[in-house]
């Protein structure tokens, strides 16, 4: 620990920075893709005819009973087989995260919509709004306020989970730190550095979510 040269950190900084950008890229694309697919699944479960709703429910419950690492392995193995040619770890990891996170986002969105009391829909319909209008102007605005903080918390968890691409060797921040730590023989310093970075980012983000939560509750 004593022989750690601060210049070393400067030398490896670009490599670690690239890793961090990969983590963020994965996070944002997975949020977008998972959010879209998750919304679709939630709508299927709430409004779809019975077989469609059951299909969505099966998807959500099935994915939620399997470890994320397992899903990452699955797509690392399957995507090249299906496409028929080798493909980067990034794409297969991204597909795994979108498929996996969609199940969690879907549950949050569904719970948010269903947390709005049924009488609200009845009142909206009674005032002459059509069903779509009722959702657009009465149900969804209330539901979004309730689920937004939870969606954001889930996304912080997702950011932490991107570190799991370590198992397929994709160079995200975690893997970059690990590679550097082993190559330079400074495990303690580099892992503690990673702790500091992850903690700062996630703590700041979760405090912001709490602030948002308080603001949306008070007025």
């Amino acid at each position: 620990m004593s022989d750690f040269d601060p210049d070393l950190l400067k030398a490896v900084a670009p490599f670690l920075w690239d890793g961090l950008l990969t983590s963020f890229g994965l996070l944002l694309l997975a949020m977008a893709g998972g959010g879209l697919l998750g919304s679709l699944l939630a709508v299927m479960r709430i409004a779809g005819p019975r077989p469609i709703a059951a299909l969505a429910a099966g998807y959500v419950n099935g994915l939620r009973s399997v470890p994320l690492i397992m899903v990452i392995f699955w797509f690392y193995l399957l995507v090249p087989l299906v496409i028929g040619r080798a493909i980067g770890a990034f794409t297969s990891a991204l597909v795994a995260f979108v498929i996996f996170e969609a199940a969690y986002y879907a549950e949050i969105i569904r719970a948010g919509i269903q947390s709005v009391p049924k009488q609200q829909l009845a009142a909206a319909l009674a005032s002459g709004l059509g069903p779509l209008q009722a959702y657009r102007f009465v149900i969804l605005p209330q539901a979004v306020r309730k689920m937004l903080p939870i969606l954001l918390s889930q996304s912080i968890a997702l950011f932490q989970d991107t570190s799991l691409v370590y198992v397929v060797g994709l160079h995200d921040f975690m893997t970059a730190v690990s590679v550097t730590a082993n190559r330079e023989g400074h495990l303690v310093e580099f892992y503690l550095f990673a702790v500091a970075i992850y903690f700062t980012l996630c703590f700041a983000a979760s405090q912001s979510v709490q602030l948002l939560n308080r603001q949306s509750v008070s007025p």
Binding site: I156, Q160, D161, S163, L164, Y166, M174, S178, Y191, L192, A194, V195, Y198, F199, C202, F203, S206
Partner: peptide
């Protein structure tokens, strides 16, 4: 503390 550090990194630590 324990919520804001990825589990994988915690294991490594």
């Amino acid at each position: 503390t324990f919520r804001n550090i990825p589990l994988l990194l915690q294991l490594f630590v």
